[in-house]
Amino acid sequence: MPRLLLAEDDADLGPAIRRALELEGYVVDLFTRGDDVLAAGRSADYDVLLLDIGLPHGTGLEVLRMLRGEGIATPVIVVTAFDRTQQRVAGLDAGADDYVVKPVDLEELAARIRSQLRRREGRQDDTMTIGPVMLDFAGHVATLEGQALPLTAKEFRVLALLMRRSRRFVSKADLEAELYDGDNWAESNTVEVAISSLRRKIGRDFIHTARGLGYMVGGRER
């Protein structure tokens, strides 16, 4: 069972996040002081550290710098206050692997933790999951809610590009270029045909459309 260190000095927020992460199936140790975090980070073997920047007795950044200075390479996700861009930059400079912004969305936090765990395991699996859809780029197969999702080659390429660039609009021109196979330009409505077919198979809401902007997969990578 993955073990997490959670550093959060707020008496309400800390326990709430710990509870939520425990429900996700993690073992969570909660600390409220910077010096305690440093001691725990040195002695115990955690899979991911979640550090709030504003900690008493040693800020999250100081703790992070000292741990990194001692060669401790445990993945660290820094929790920063809203919109304080300089804090984020400072966090990444100090050796953080990722950051989340308060107020923390627990689903997003869970996704970031999963991502760090995957990296820690060094599992270079060539797959990507957004919402109910999992793509295996190497095997060129897709699943929907764990069930095989049969896709044509064009549909797979369109879906793969949209998922790689999720949460941004991908223009129709970019999708057409993706479908260009070196000899034949795609027919003018190939993209539309692929999209409407994908929507039929996955569900209408998985792919957003905006005329003039293109298409977008709105979900977040899990």
């Binding site: 309400d12 709430a16 939520a20 308060k102 107020p103 923390v104 969305d105 627990l106």
Partner: peptide, 22 residues
């Protein structure tokens, strides 16, 4: 003020999300 208000709100939100699951 905004910063201080945000923390308890974040706690409420996190607790609500825990509640939602349970």
């Amino acid at each position: 003020v905004a910063h201080e208000l945000r923390t308890p709100l974040a706690a409420i939100r996190a607790q609500a999300q825990v509640l939602r699951r349970l």
